[in-house]
Design a protein around this nucleic acid. Sequence first.
DNA 1: CTGAAAGCGCTTACAG
DNA 2: CTGAAAGCGCTTACAG
Lengths: 345, 345
Amino acid sequence: MEQGASPRRKGPGVTQEEVGRLAGVSGKTVARVIANDPHVSEATREKVEAAIRQTGFRPNFAARSLAAAKSYLIAIFLPDHSSLYHADLFRSAAAACAAKGYHLLLEQYEADSSASALERYDISLRQTRCDGVILAPPLSNDRQLIDRLTADAMPHVLIAPADAEGRSPAVLADESAGVIALFDHLWSLGHRTFGLCTPPPGRPYLHRRNEIFLQCLAGQGAAASAVKLAPFRWEGSTMLSGRTAARFLLDGPDSPDAIFAFNDEYAHGVMIGAQERGLPVPDALSVAGFDDGAAAQFAWPPLTTIRQPLDLMAKKAVELITEGGESCLCAVELMVRQSTGRKAD
Amino acid sequence: MEQGASPRRKGPGVTQEEVGRLAGVSGKTVARVIANDPHVSEATREKVEAAIRQTGFRPNFAARSLAAAKSYLIAIFLPDHSSLYHADLFRSAAAACAAKGYHLLLEQYEADSSASALERYDISLRQTRCDGVILAPPLSNDRQLIDRLTADAMPHVLIAPADAEGRSPAVLADESAGVIALFDHLWSLGHRTFGLCTPPPGRPYLHRRNEIFLQCLAGQGAAASAVKLAPFRWEGSTMLSGRTAARFLLDGPDSPDAIFAFNDEYAHGVMIGAQERGLPVPDALSVAGFDDGAAAQFAWPPLTTIRQPLDLMAKKAVELITEGGESCLCAVELMVRQSTGRKAD
DNA sequence: CTGAAAGCGCTTACAG
DNA sequence: CTGAAAGCGCTTACAG
């Protein structure tokens, strides 16, 4: 016989107030228990916790967001071209979010359309008032989007931007160290002539990998003829483009001892191209990639590459948003597998 | 000189009320314009729209969720093992969500721990009161989790469950038709002996693919000796396990004409195993997979497989949650590529 | 250590 | 066609 019952439909959930009533305290005290506020007596805490267990109470996310002006939501953009690099990143970011009571929002955009991510932000993401946005490559180099987020006072973190000059906090992998380690590895195996691949346009962070490799080569006093560069030609997929690059590099008398591809998918294509030419990897040719993404696992033989600690980087990115802090640099690791070997005599 | 200004911090956003004031109407009218309510005069609508543009107003997500008891959030679980199958699904689901004004929430769980997804739901997802949950394989077969969602009155959709007997709405791919198409393709190429691979335990939907293949074979009146079955042995990755299966199948005098692997990653491993044995694909052996996932693109030669329309399926799943409706069956497509060929004489 | 009040910015009925 | 009132379930100050 409830009088004055609310005319509004009540959701299935229990409220703070109801839990409090059950425990003989106010709703506010329930909130304090949940927030782990130390200013609660042990006896009260136990009563409240029992009531929470009994009712299965979970605070209402929307109400909390509204009152606290905090969404507990972190967004990340997903390009429409599948990429295991991104899938790995999401997995780690989602885990890091969960550990901090946040949730990860996925926003899809068209990688081919330069305005798409910005548009998605304006139309869709902005109104969520999420607490931050994580930008993975290639978006972490999208000046327009970054400026927009900055103007909107929307916290954001850049994963592996090509240059960390900007004032946006960034999580970087020590790519230089990675390329150097890879070069040293190849050099120590006796290789003296190298093939490099031109990355797609608009990917400065990939170009940088090549530049560092060339600096290493120069550091050894190698002649310019020690390196052969394949032009970029898009064949419909990264792998097929790598295959074409390999054909270019392996044709002619100046075929190199080893090929360094700027990422794993490209390296995979390079290996296929080499094997089609009848060159077994690594016996006739060493091939190395970069990222240690899924392509490194799919490739055969297993690919020597540089492991980016994506799980750590995603975790760091989430932390930078939830707790603030400085940009940071994460160590990479050389993964020596079977695609590189000693130069045949 | 605002008197009685709110003591509470105001977010950076503009409110409905403020937009209304600018347009000379009430906040409620602004809401009506945004909801595309037809009961608004054209003149008012234009004034309001101008004010919205001018202020860059976006409704506050949390306030909307709280008032409407609707979160505009759809959740999907992500296993901690990277899988392009899932990455593809998310991409499509996120796009479908965006098209309907919803957002996609990613919840990571540990695929190896049977309780992990349930736990993630209880601890984290439940309080978001999202409007629905999408369960992809293998979770779409997790009876415990499904029962829990049902008990919680949490709307959910199963993607490709092994059996669609339950009362949960499901989006199915017509896998039987796919296996049949694949069998017919191999049979028409002249292959008469076949290798099959035992899927990992606890994946009834993968076992079913083999069963249907065997039924096709029986339908042709083939003898039991026409098929050789590799046992399941986990080698640390799907691909390596497939490679081991291939070795088993190709050793001995009863080596088959063609191998049907229950999914693409396995098929990729099978091709590697075959090529290592000196058997060129497809000249000496035809190999076919299932899913047309990323592994099909990484494989070499390009893999003949069955394409599951994941984009359509994800879209359907989102629709079932936002608009309700019946379970549905999506057509699959045979993708003939270079891993299958006519039986050598 | 605990509670009553006010408010977050919307939506849902209900009036006019 | 448009508006004023009440309420969604929390949190934030402020009292006690």
